[in-house]
Design a protein around this nucleic acid. Structure first.
Lengths: 215, 215
DNA sequence: GTTTGTATCAAACGATCGTTTGAATGTCAA
DNA sequence: TTGACATTCAAACGATCGTTTGATACAAAC
Protein backbone atom coordinates (compact mmCIF):
# COMPACT_ATOMS: atom_id res chain seq x y z
CA UNK A 1 0.00 0.00 0.00
CA UNK A 2 2.05 2.85 -1.33
CA UNK A 3 -0.05 5.83 -0.38
CA UNK A 4 -0.31 6.48 3.35
CA UNK A 5 -3.66 5.97 5.06
CA UNK A 6 -5.89 8.94 5.41
CA UNK A 7 -7.93 7.69 8.37
CA UNK A 8 -9.00 4.72 6.26
CA UNK A 9 -8.24 3.45 2.78
CA UNK A 10 -10.23 4.97 -0.03
CA UNK A 11 -11.58 1.57 -0.98
CA UNK A 12 -12.95 1.04 2.52
CA UNK A 13 -14.47 4.51 2.70
CA UNK A 14 -16.22 3.88 -0.60
CA UNK A 15 -17.66 0.62 0.71
CA UNK A 16 -18.87 2.34 3.89
CA UNK A 17 -20.56 5.18 2.04
CA UNK A 18 -21.97 2.88 -0.61
CA UNK A 19 -23.56 0.58 1.93
CA UNK A 20 -25.34 3.43 3.71
CA UNK A 21 -26.59 4.96 0.48
CA UNK A 22 -27.61 1.71 -1.19
CA UNK A 23 -29.53 0.72 1.94
CA UNK A 24 -31.28 4.08 2.13
CA UNK A 25 -32.16 4.59 -1.53
CA UNK A 26 -31.53 1.41 -3.47
CA UNK A 27 -29.05 0.65 -6.22
CA UNK A 28 -30.48 2.70 -9.06
CA UNK A 29 -31.29 5.75 -6.97
CA UNK A 30 -27.69 6.22 -5.87
CA UNK A 31 -25.16 7.73 -8.28
CA UNK A 32 -21.45 7.01 -8.32
CA UNK A 33 -20.86 10.73 -7.81
CA UNK A 34 -22.99 10.64 -4.67
CA UNK A 35 -20.95 7.75 -3.29
CA UNK A 36 -17.53 9.20 -4.06
CA UNK A 37 -18.62 12.56 -2.72
CA UNK A 38 -19.68 10.99 0.58
CA UNK A 39 -16.44 9.00 0.67
CA UNK A 40 -14.42 12.19 -0.04
CA UNK A 41 -12.57 10.77 -3.00
CA UNK A 42 -12.39 11.19 -6.74
CA UNK A 43 -15.17 10.07 -9.04
CA UNK A 44 -12.93 7.63 -10.87
CA UNK A 45 -12.04 5.77 -7.66
CA UNK A 46 -15.08 3.49 -7.91
CA UNK A 47 -14.10 2.27 -11.35
CA UNK A 48 -10.46 1.98 -10.35
CA UNK A 49 -11.11 -0.13 -7.26
CA UNK A 50 -14.21 -2.07 -8.31
CA UNK A 51 -14.32 -1.92 -12.11
CA UNK A 52 -17.94 -0.80 -12.24
CA UNK A 53 -20.82 0.27 -10.03
CA UNK A 54 -22.48 -3.14 -10.10
CA UNK A 55 -19.36 -4.81 -8.71
CA UNK A 56 -19.30 -2.28 -5.89
CA UNK A 57 -22.86 -3.25 -4.99
CA UNK A 58 -21.90 -6.92 -4.87
CA UNK A 59 -18.79 -6.13 -2.85
CA UNK A 60 -20.93 -4.28 -0.29
CA UNK A 61 -22.78 -7.54 0.32
CA UNK A 62 -19.62 -9.62 0.36
CA UNK A 63 -17.53 -7.45 2.64
CA UNK A 64 -20.18 -5.75 4.76
CA UNK A 65 -23.52 -7.53 4.75
CA UNK A 66 -22.35 -11.14 5.03
CA UNK A 67 -19.96 -10.45 7.95
CA UNK A 68 -22.74 -8.67 9.76
CA UNK A 69 -25.10 -11.58 9.20
CA UNK A 70 -22.38 -13.82 10.58
CA UNK A 71 -22.16 -11.68 13.70
CA UNK A 72 -25.91 -12.04 14.19
CA UNK A 73 -25.64 -15.78 13.73
CA UNK A 74 -22.78 -16.02 16.22
CA UNK A 75 -24.74 -13.94 18.69
CA UNK A 76 -27.55 -16.46 18.36
CA UNK A 77 -25.14 -19.37 18.89
CA UNK A 78 -23.43 -17.87 21.91
CA UNK A 79 -26.73 -17.14 23.59
CA UNK A 80 -27.57 -20.82 23.31
CA UNK A 81 -24.08 -22.08 24.17
CA UNK A 82 -24.23 -20.31 27.52
CA UNK A 83 -27.28 -22.30 28.58
CA UNK A 84 -27.35 -25.45 30.68
CA UNK A 85 -30.27 -26.91 28.80
CA UNK A 86 -32.21 -25.71 25.80
CA UNK A 87 -35.93 -25.25 25.35
CA UNK A 88 -38.11 -23.74 22.61
CA UNK A 89 -38.55 -20.47 24.55
CA UNK A 90 -34.79 -20.07 24.87
CA UNK A 91 -34.18 -20.81 21.20
CA UNK A 92 -36.83 -18.43 19.95
CA UNK A 93 -35.85 -15.64 22.33
CA UNK A 94 -32.21 -16.04 21.30
CA UNK A 95 -33.21 -15.50 17.69
CA UNK A 96 -35.38 -12.48 18.40
CA UNK A 97 -32.70 -10.91 20.54
CA UNK A 98 -29.97 -11.56 18.00
CA UNK A 99 -31.99 -9.72 15.37
CA UNK A 100 -33.78 -6.98 17.29
CA UNK A 101 -31.33 -6.17 20.08
CA UNK A 102 -28.33 -8.18 19.03
CA UNK A 103 -24.67 -7.29 18.45
CA UNK A 104 -25.34 -4.51 15.96
CA UNK A 105 -25.82 -0.82 16.48
CA UNK A 106 -29.24 0.51 15.62
CA UNK A 107 -28.01 2.06 12.38
CA UNK A 108 -26.33 -1.19 11.38
CA UNK A 109 -29.47 -3.15 12.09
CA UNK A 110 -31.56 -0.83 9.99
CA UNK A 111 -29.11 -0.96 7.07
CA UNK A 112 -28.91 -4.74 7.34
CA UNK A 113 -32.67 -5.20 7.17
CA UNK A 114 -33.06 -2.67 4.38
CA UNK A 115 -30.47 -4.35 2.18
CA UNK A 116 -31.95 -7.78 2.79
CA UNK A 117 -35.49 -6.60 2.13
CA UNK A 118 -34.35 -5.04 -1.15
CA UNK A 119 -32.85 -8.28 -2.31
CA UNK A 120 -35.95 -10.21 -1.31
CA UNK A 121 -38.35 -7.93 -3.18
CA UNK A 122 -36.22 -7.64 -6.30
CA UNK A 123 -33.34 -10.08 -6.28
CA UNK A 124 -30.15 -9.07 -8.06
CA UNK A 125 -26.90 -10.97 -8.35
CA UNK A 126 -26.38 -10.42 -4.65
CA UNK A 127 -29.39 -12.56 -3.79
CA UNK A 128 -27.63 -15.75 -4.82
CA UNK A 129 -24.77 -14.90 -2.51
CA UNK A 130 -27.04 -13.94 0.36
CA UNK A 131 -29.32 -16.95 -0.06
CA UNK A 132 -26.62 -19.57 -0.40
CA UNK A 133 -24.09 -18.35 2.13
CA UNK A 134 -26.32 -16.88 4.81
CA UNK A 135 -30.08 -17.27 4.70
CA UNK A 136 -30.32 -20.96 3.82
CA UNK A 137 -27.71 -22.16 6.36
CA UNK A 138 -29.00 -19.94 9.17
CA UNK A 139 -32.53 -20.93 8.41
CA UNK A 140 -31.62 -24.59 8.54
CA UNK A 141 -29.60 -24.19 11.73
CA UNK A 142 -32.47 -22.50 13.50
CA UNK A 143 -35.04 -25.01 12.32
CA UNK A 144 -32.82 -27.95 13.31
CA UNK A 145 -32.07 -26.48 16.73
CA UNK A 146 -35.72 -25.86 17.35
CA UNK A 147 -36.70 -29.33 16.26
CA UNK A 148 -34.11 -30.92 18.53
CA UNK A 149 -35.66 -29.31 21.61
CA UNK A 150 -39.25 -29.63 20.45
CA UNK A 151 -41.27 -32.37 22.10
CA UNK A 152 -44.08 -32.41 19.52
CA UNK A 153 -43.66 -34.35 16.34
CA UNK A 154 -43.71 -32.00 13.40
CA UNK A 155 -43.32 -32.51 9.66
CA UNK A 156 -40.51 -30.93 7.68
CA UNK A 157 -42.77 -28.50 5.84
CA UNK A 158 -44.62 -27.53 9.00
CA UNK A 159 -41.31 -26.78 10.66
CA UNK A 160 -40.18 -24.62 7.72
CA UNK A 161 -43.40 -22.64 7.66
CA UNK A 162 -43.25 -22.06 11.39
CA UNK A 163 -39.70 -20.82 11.01
CA UNK A 164 -40.85 -18.48 8.25
CA UNK A 165 -43.60 -17.18 10.50
CA UNK A 166 -41.05 -16.33 13.16
CA UNK A 167 -38.62 -14.79 10.68
CA UNK A 168 -41.41 -12.75 9.15
CA UNK A 169 -41.98 -11.01 12.47
CA UNK A 170 -38.30 -10.52 13.12
CA UNK A 171 -37.73 -8.95 9.72
CA UNK A 172 -40.94 -7.01 9.56
CA UNK A 173 -40.46 -5.28 12.89
CA UNK A 174 -37.10 -4.16 11.57
CA UNK A 175 -37.81 -2.98 8.06
CA UNK A 176 -41.28 -1.59 8.59
CA UNK A 177 -40.23 0.73 11.38
CA UNK A 178 -41.93 3.72 9.86
CA UNK A 179 -45.30 2.03 9.81
CA UNK A 180 -44.86 0.40 13.21
CA UNK A 181 -43.77 3.64 14.84
CA UNK A 182 -46.54 5.57 13.19
CA UNK A 183 -49.32 3.27 14.33
CA UNK A 184 -48.07 2.36 17.80
CA UNK A 185 -46.80 5.87 18.44
CA UNK A 186 -43.54 4.48 19.86
CA UNK A 187 -39.95 5.16 18.86
CA UNK A 188 -37.41 2.40 18.31
CA UNK A 189 -35.48 2.96 21.53
CA UNK A 190 -34.09 0.38 23.94
CA UNK A 191 -37.38 -0.03 25.78
CA UNK A 192 -39.44 -0.62 22.68
CA UNK A 193 -36.92 -3.05 21.20
CA UNK A 194 -37.05 -5.10 24.40
CA UNK A 195 -40.83 -4.99 24.13
CA UNK A 196 -40.64 -6.26 20.55
CA UNK A 197 -38.38 -9.14 21.55
CA UNK A 198 -40.98 -10.17 24.11
CA UNK A 199 -43.77 -9.86 21.58
CA UNK A 200 -41.97 -11.97 19.00
CA UNK A 201 -40.97 -14.56 21.56
CA UNK A 202 -44.34 -14.96 23.22
CA UNK A 203 -46.35 -14.85 20.01
CA UNK A 204 -44.05 -17.38 18.37
CA UNK A 205 -43.99 -19.76 21.30
CA UNK A 206 -47.73 -19.88 21.43
CA UNK A 207 -47.78 -20.12 17.67
CA UNK A 208 -45.54 -23.13 17.97
CA UNK A 209 -47.93 -24.66 20.44
CA UNK A 210 -45.63 -24.37 23.43
CA UNK A 211 -48.00 -23.69 26.29
CA UNK A 212 -45.71 -23.76 29.30
CA UNK A 213 -44.09 -20.41 29.92
CA UNK A 214 -40.69 -21.63 31.05
CA UNK A 215 -37.83 -19.18 30.59
CA UNK B 1 -62.95 13.06 -25.35
CA UNK B 2 -62.25 14.07 -28.89
CA UNK B 3 -60.03 11.25 -30.05
CA UNK B 4 -61.73 7.85 -30.28
CA UNK B 5 -60.63 5.13 -27.87
CA UNK B 6 -57.95 2.77 -29.02
CA UNK B 7 -58.88 -0.14 -26.76
CA UNK B 8 -58.33 2.09 -23.75
CA UNK B 9 -57.41 5.70 -23.19
CA UNK B 10 -53.74 6.54 -23.34
CA UNK B 11 -53.87 7.85 -19.79
CA UNK B 12 -55.20 4.54 -18.50
CA UNK B 13 -52.68 2.50 -20.48
CA UNK B 14 -49.89 4.60 -19.01
CA UNK B 15 -51.18 3.98 -15.49
CA UNK B 16 -51.40 0.24 -16.14
CA UNK B 17 -47.88 -0.01 -17.52
CA UNK B 18 -46.46 2.30 -14.88
CA UNK B 19 -47.89 0.26 -12.05
CA UNK B 20 -46.42 -2.98 -13.32
CA UNK B 21 -43.00 -1.45 -13.91
CA UNK B 22 -42.86 0.56 -10.68
CA UNK B 23 -43.82 -2.55 -8.72
CA UNK B 24 -41.19 -4.65 -10.47
CA UNK B 25 -38.26 -2.24 -10.43
CA UNK B 26 -39.05 0.73 -8.22
CA UNK B 27 -39.50 4.39 -9.08
CA UNK B 28 -35.94 5.35 -9.97
CA UNK B 29 -35.17 2.23 -11.96
CA UNK B 30 -38.03 2.83 -14.40
CA UNK B 31 -37.65 5.45 -17.11
CA UNK B 32 -40.47 7.44 -18.68
CA UNK B 33 -39.44 6.02 -22.05
CA UNK B 34 -39.84 2.49 -20.69
CA UNK B 35 -43.36 3.29 -19.48
CA UNK B 36 -44.55 5.00 -22.65
CA UNK B 37 -43.02 2.26 -24.75
CA UNK B 38 -44.92 -0.41 -22.78
CA UNK B 39 -48.09 1.70 -23.05
CA UNK B 40 -47.56 2.08 -26.81
CA UNK B 41 -47.78 5.86 -26.78
CA UNK B 42 -45.56 8.88 -27.28
CA UNK B 43 -42.86 9.85 -24.82
CA UNK B 44 -44.46 13.23 -24.14
CA UNK B 45 -47.75 11.65 -23.09
CA UNK B 46 -46.64 11.24 -19.48
CA UNK B 47 -45.89 14.93 -19.11
CA UNK B 48 -49.05 15.87 -20.97
CA UNK B 49 -51.37 13.79 -18.80
CA UNK B 50 -49.56 13.90 -15.44
CA UNK B 51 -47.24 16.89 -15.55
CA UNK B 52 -44.21 14.97 -14.39
CA UNK B 53 -43.04 11.45 -13.56
CA UNK B 54 -43.45 11.89 -9.83
CA UNK B 55 -47.13 12.77 -10.23
CA UNK B 56 -47.62 9.63 -12.29
CA UNK B 57 -46.19 7.56 -9.45
CA UNK B 58 -48.60 9.16 -6.98
CA UNK B 59 -51.50 8.67 -9.36
CA UNK B 60 -50.67 4.96 -9.61
CA UNK B 61 -51.27 4.70 -5.88
CA UNK B 62 -54.39 6.85 -5.99
CA UNK B 63 -56.11 5.22 -8.92
CA UNK B 64 -54.75 1.67 -8.78
CA UNK B 65 -53.31 0.73 -5.39
CA UNK B 66 -55.93 2.27 -3.11
CA UNK B 67 -58.90 0.75 -4.98
CA UNK B 68 -57.24 -2.63 -4.82
CA UNK B 69 -56.66 -2.26 -1.10
CA UNK B 70 -60.32 -1.38 -0.80
CA UNK B 71 -61.27 -4.58 -2.62
CA UNK B 72 -59.18 -6.58 -0.17
CA UNK B 73 -60.83 -4.81 2.73
CA UNK B 74 -64.30 -5.45 1.35
CA UNK B 75 -63.43 -9.08 0.82
CA UNK B 76 -62.50 -9.25 4.48
CA UNK B 77 -65.76 -7.58 5.50
CA UNK B 78 -67.97 -9.78 3.34
CA UNK B 79 -66.34 -12.92 4.67
CA UNK B 80 -67.32 -11.84 8.16
CA UNK B 81 -70.76 -10.50 7.22
CA UNK B 82 -71.75 -13.91 5.92
CA UNK B 83 -71.22 -15.52 9.31
CA UNK B 84 -73.85 -16.19 11.96
CA UNK B 85 -71.46 -15.47 14.79
CA UNK B 86 -67.86 -14.33 14.87
CA UNK B 87 -64.86 -15.83 16.61
CA UNK B 88 -61.14 -15.12 16.58
CA UNK B 89 -60.43 -18.01 14.21
CA UNK B 90 -63.00 -16.70 11.75
CA UNK B 91 -61.63 -13.16 11.91
CA UNK B 92 -58.02 -14.18 11.44
CA UNK B 93 -58.77 -16.60 8.64
CA UNK B 94 -60.83 -13.96 6.88
CA UNK B 95 -57.82 -11.64 6.94
CA UNK B 96 -55.37 -14.25 5.72
CA UNK B 97 -57.71 -15.32 2.93
CA UNK B 98 -58.39 -11.74 1.87
CA UNK B 99 -54.66 -11.15 1.45
CA UNK B 100 -53.30 -14.49 0.28
CA UNK B 101 -56.19 -15.91 -1.73
CA UNK B 102 -58.56 -12.98 -1.82
CA UNK B 103 -60.28 -11.13 -4.67
CA UNK B 104 -57.11 -10.34 -6.62
CA UNK B 105 -55.39 -12.23 -9.36
CA UNK B 106 -51.98 -13.55 -8.49
CA UNK B 107 -50.21 -10.86 -10.52
CA UNK B 108 -52.29 -8.17 -8.86
CA UNK B 109 -51.48 -9.53 -5.42
CA UNK B 110 -47.78 -9.56 -6.16
CA UNK B 111 -47.83 -5.99 -7.51
CA UNK B 112 -49.87 -4.84 -4.54
CA UNK B 113 -47.44 -6.27 -2.00
CA UNK B 114 -44.41 -5.04 -3.88
CA UNK B 115 -45.67 -1.46 -4.04
CA UNK B 116 -46.61 -1.47 -0.36
CA UNK B 117 -43.29 -2.97 0.67
CA UNK B 118 -41.45 -0.30 -1.30
CA UNK B 119 -43.30 2.47 0.47
CA UNK B 120 -42.66 0.86 3.84
CA UNK B 121 -38.92 0.49 3.32
CA UNK B 122 -38.43 3.94 1.82
CA UNK B 123 -41.52 6.09 2.15
CA UNK B 124 -42.17 8.67 -0.55
CA UNK B 125 -45.06 11.09 -0.87
CA UNK B 126 -47.29 8.10 -1.55
CA UNK B 127 -46.76 6.73 1.94
CA UNK B 128 -48.83 9.48 3.53
CA UNK B 129 -51.70 8.62 1.23
CA UNK B 130 -51.36 4.90 1.81
CA UNK B 131 -50.97 5.19 5.55
CA UNK B 132 -53.81 7.62 6.15
CA UNK B 133 -56.42 6.30 3.75
CA UNK B 134 -55.77 2.58 3.88
CA UNK B 135 -53.34 1.07 6.34
CA UNK B 136 -54.37 2.92 9.49
CA UNK B 137 -58.14 2.45 9.03
CA UNK B 138 -57.86 -1.18 8.00
CA UNK B 139 -55.48 -1.86 10.82
CA UNK B 140 -57.86 -0.30 13.29
CA UNK B 141 -60.87 -2.11 11.86
CA UNK B 142 -59.17 -5.47 12.15
CA UNK B 143 -57.90 -4.82 15.68
CA UNK B 144 -61.34 -3.61 16.82
CA UNK B 145 -63.10 -6.57 15.25
CA UNK B 146 -60.71 -8.97 16.84
CA UNK B 147 -61.03 -7.32 20.23
CA UNK B 148 -64.81 -7.46 20.09
CA UNK B 149 -64.79 -11.24 19.73
CA UNK B 150 -61.85 -11.85 22.03
CA UNK B 151 -62.71 -13.20 25.46
CA UNK B 152 -59.35 -12.37 27.06
CA UNK B 153 -58.69 -8.90 28.33
CA UNK B 154 -55.89 -7.31 26.39
CA UNK B 155 -54.24 -3.90 26.53
CA UNK B 156 -54.28 -1.52 23.57
CA UNK B 157 -50.58 -1.88 22.85
CA UNK B 158 -50.68 -5.66 23.15
CA UNK B 159 -53.53 -5.75 20.67
CA UNK B 160 -51.62 -3.56 18.23
CA UNK B 161 -48.48 -5.66 18.44
CA UNK B 162 -50.46 -8.86 17.93
CA UNK B 163 -52.07 -7.32 14.89
CA UNK B 164 -48.65 -6.40 13.58
CA UNK B 165 -47.46 -9.95 14.12
CA UNK B 166 -50.33 -11.25 12.03
CA UNK B 167 -49.85 -8.63 9.32
CA UNK B 168 -46.15 -9.35 9.21
CA UNK B 169 -46.84 -12.93 8.19
CA UNK B 170 -49.49 -11.94 5.68
CA UNK B 171 -47.22 -9.41 4.01
CA UNK B 172 -44.04 -11.45 4.26
CA UNK B 173 -45.48 -14.54 2.61
CA UNK B 174 -46.49 -12.30 -0.25
CA UNK B 175 -43.46 -10.14 -0.88
CA UNK B 176 -40.76 -12.66 0.00
CA UNK B 177 -42.00 -15.26 -2.45
CA UNK B 178 -38.60 -15.81 -3.95
CA UNK B 179 -37.05 -16.75 -0.63
CA UNK B 180 -40.06 -18.78 0.51
CA UNK B 181 -40.25 -20.72 -2.74
CA UNK B 182 -36.52 -21.31 -2.77
CA UNK B 183 -36.35 -22.74 0.74
CA UNK B 184 -39.61 -24.69 0.84
CA UNK B 185 -39.24 -25.82 -2.76
CA UNK B 186 -42.89 -25.02 -3.45
CA UNK B 187 -44.44 -22.77 -6.07
CA UNK B 188 -47.11 -20.20 -5.29
CA UNK B 189 -50.00 -22.13 -6.78
CA UNK B 190 -53.51 -22.59 -5.43
CA UNK B 191 -52.54 -25.47 -3.17
CA UNK B 192 -49.63 -23.69 -1.57
CA UNK B 193 -51.61 -20.48 -1.05
CA UNK B 194 -54.30 -22.46 0.77
CA UNK B 195 -51.54 -24.03 2.84
CA UNK B 196 -50.20 -20.57 3.70
CA UNK B 197 -53.63 -19.36 4.78
CA UNK B 198 -53.81 -22.29 7.16
CA UNK B 199 -50.32 -21.62 8.46
CA UNK B 200 -51.02 -17.95 9.11
CA UNK B 201 -54.37 -18.69 10.71
CA UNK B 202 -53.21 -21.47 13.01
CA UNK B 203 -49.97 -19.81 14.01
CA UNK B 204 -51.73 -16.54 14.72
CA UNK B 205 -54.55 -18.08 16.70
CA UNK B 206 -52.15 -19.88 18.94
CA UNK B 207 -50.07 -16.75 19.10
CA UNK B 208 -53.14 -14.91 20.26
CA UNK B 209 -53.65 -17.52 22.95
CA UNK B 210 -56.78 -19.02 21.44
CA UNK B 211 -56.50 -22.68 22.27
CA UNK B 212 -59.82 -24.08 21.06
CA UNK B 213 -59.68 -25.00 17.39
CA UNK B 214 -63.19 -23.95 16.48
CA UNK B 215 -63.73 -23.06 12.85
C1' DG C 1 -65.99 26.39 -43.46
C1' DT C 2 -63.87 28.31 -39.79
C1' DT C 3 -62.68 28.23 -35.11
C1' DT C 4 -61.61 26.08 -30.75
C1' DG C 5 -59.77 22.77 -27.75
C1' DT C 6 -57.86 18.09 -26.99
C1' DA C 7 -54.59 14.76 -27.98
C1' DT C 8 -50.55 12.87 -30.22
C1' DC C 9 -46.27 13.10 -32.43
C1' DA C 10 -41.08 13.69 -33.79
C1' DA C 11 -37.45 16.25 -32.37
C1' DA C 12 -34.69 18.55 -29.44
C1' DC C 13 -33.40 20.63 -24.78
C1' DG C 14 -30.06 20.76 -20.83
C1' DA C 15 -28.83 17.84 -17.05
C1' DT C 16 -27.01 13.89 -15.21
C1' DC C 17 -25.61 9.24 -15.65
C1' DG C 18 -21.59 5.45 -15.64
C1' DT C 19 -17.28 5.10 -17.53
C1' DT C 20 -12.73 6.25 -19.70
C1' DT C 21 -8.60 8.83 -20.38
C1' DG C 22 -4.07 10.62 -19.53
C1' DA C 23 -1.45 13.27 -16.64
C1' DA C 24 0.13 14.00 -11.91
C1' DT C 25 1.56 12.31 -7.46
C1' DG C 26 3.06 9.35 -4.34
C1' DT C 27 5.85 4.90 -2.58
C1' DC C 28 9.19 1.44 -2.76
C1' DA C 29 12.86 -1.55 -4.71
C1' DA C 30 17.04 -1.55 -7.33
C1' DT D 1 18.75 8.53 -8.47
C1' DT D 2 16.19 5.93 -11.26
C1' DG D 3 12.53 2.97 -12.81
C1' DA D 4 8.30 0.47 -11.82
C1' DC D 5 4.10 0.43 -9.80
C1' DA D 6 -0.09 1.98 -7.24
C1' DT D 7 -3.20 5.56 -6.52
C1' DT D 8 -5.53 9.99 -7.20
C1' DC D 9 -7.09 13.58 -9.94
C1' DA D 10 -9.48 16.92 -13.43
C1' DA D 11 -11.54 16.54 -17.60
C1' DA D 12 -14.03 14.61 -20.99
C1' DC D 13 -16.63 10.68 -23.29
C1' DG D 14 -21.09 8.92 -25.22
C1' DA D 15 -25.46 7.44 -23.48
C1' DT D 16 -29.59 8.17 -21.25
C1' DC D 17 -32.42 10.77 -18.27
C1' DG D 18 -36.91 13.93 -17.48
C1' DT D 19 -38.89 17.57 -19.70
C1' DT D 20 -40.18 21.04 -23.33
C1' DT D 21 -41.33 22.59 -27.82
C1' DG D 22 -43.89 23.36 -32.00
C1' DA D 23 -46.19 21.09 -35.55
C1' DT D 24 -49.94 18.10 -36.73
C1' DA D 25 -54.36 15.42 -36.53
C1' DC D 26 -58.85 15.24 -35.15
C1' DA D 27 -63.64 16.04 -33.23
C1' DA D 28 -67.09 19.20 -31.78
C1' DA D 29 -69.02 24.11 -31.71
C1' DC D 30 -70.27 28.04 -34.13
Amino acid sequence: MPRENREEHTKERILDSAEVLFAQKGYQAVSVREITSAARCNLAAVNYHFGKKENLYLEVFRSRWVPRATRIRESFRKALAGQDSLSPPKVVRALAQAFVEGPLSDEERLRHSQLMTREMTQPTGAFELVAQEVIQPFFKEFADTLRSVQTDEMGQEQMLLNTFSIFSMVLYFNFARVAVSRITGREYNTDFRARLVEQITQFSLQGLGVSEMEV
